[in-house]
């Protein structure tokens, strides 16, 4: 019997080849996905950038394929700056809303839920996260409609005046919840809430029970423990979650189209500019804005150590 075995066919020959040249197999594996992502995705992003440096001929409405910064200059017009600022305000307030609502759920699931309750909480957060986006928005159109369940509940409990008072607040109110800023905000918070809960729970689960006990042993009250131990340790999770809520809100154009005032957000502006207005260069320039904001946001988040909680 020999020290080595005979090659039995093509499979063995190729295996030998892969063994002698380990990078060959790696390249063969990576080639198709890299060609796809590189060509389709990075190529498209490049196309977006290229388009954003083109401009549109104001008279004929035809795209002029020449390099110019004029399209970016248009972003600084008052009406366009309004859109960008409004979007940022909405993203920030949605992120805060999500963080506040998510915390008790994440905290309870991480610290107190055990066994089947743990699984129930996990499924209870995961299913809404994955289930149909449009169906969720549609559900809120039903809820927020003037004749819908909130109006009915207000009437049944005699709180209609409170609802009307809220709706009459300038800036966030409106004719009904479904045509108010407040309504848009509520739907955003609802739709992106699970994206905040999961990373928050993950980072809270990393707070060892012993650390909480140590804090209690040292004489900290429950509130002190919470403020000085739990919150700082949960912060990376909050930041990780906020990456999702911020980015998703900033890029969304479906929700403000269905629920809310007619005021535009970045996503809606991009959609309308490339569609009905046919101004692809300006749409592209608008789409670059969230990229820039997210890059800055991610750099800040990275410094805060948020990526370990993803």
């Amino acid at each position: 019997m020999s020290a080595t075995l005979a090659t039995r066919g093509l499979g063995d020959k190729l295996t030998g080849l892969f063994w002698r040249k380990p990078n060959l197999l790696l390249m063969l594996l990576l080639m198709p996905p890299l060609i796809w992502l590189g060509l389709v995705y990075l190529g498209s992003l490049a196309a977006l950038l290229v388009q954003s440096f083109y401009s549109i001929d104001e008279f004929s409405g035809v795209v002029v394929p020449e390099f110019t910064l004029r399209t970016y200059g248009e972003l600084f017009r008052a009406q366009n700056m309004d859109i960008i600022l409004r979007t940022l305000m909405m993203s920030a307030s949605v992120t805060i809303g999500c963080a506040v609502l998510a915390f008790p759920i994440a905290y309870f699931a991480a610290r107190y839920a055990r066994g089947p309750w743990k699984a129930a909480f996990y499924l209870g957060v995961m299913l809404p996260l994955w289930s149909s986006y449009l169906v969720k928005i549609y559900a809120w159109k039903l809820i927020l409609a003037k004749e819908g369940i909130i109006g009915w509940a207000a009437g049944a409990t005699g709180t209609t005046p409170i609802l009307e008072a809220v709706l009459s607040i300038p800036g966030i109110g409106g004719n009904s919840l479904s045509t108010s800023f407040l309504g848009t905000w509520m739907v955003f918070v609802y739709v992106w809430l699970p994206y905040m809960i999961l990373p928050m729970q993950a980072s809270l689960e990393r707070v060892p029970q012993s650390m909480l006990e140590a804090s209690a042993d040292l004489g900290a009250s429950r509130a002190q423990t919470f403020r000085t131990v739990v919150l700082p340790l949960a912060l990376p999770g909050v930041i990780a979650g906020s990456i999702f809520t911020f980015s998703l809100t900033m890029g969304d154009y479906i929700i403000p189209q269905i629920v809310g005032t007619s005021a535009r957000f970045i996503g809606l502006a991009v959609y309308q500019l490339q569609g009905t207005a046919g101004n692809i260069p300006l749409a592209a320039a608008f789409a670059v804005v969230p990229i820039v904001i997210m890059v800055i946001y991610l750099m800040l988040a990275k410094r805060a150590g948020a990526f370990d909680a993803l």
Binding site: G251, Y271, I280
Partner: peptide
């Protein structure tokens, strides 16, 4: 770099992916 490239399409807002593809289709 490769893992970043894979995550990018969902890390960036969908409107950017959409608009990018739309730009590419328009150019080509």
């Amino acid at each position: 770099q490769i893992s970043l490239l894979i995550i990018l399409p969902i890390a960036l807002p969908g409107v950017i992916t959409g608009m990018s593809l739309r730009s590419a289709f328009a150019i080509m």
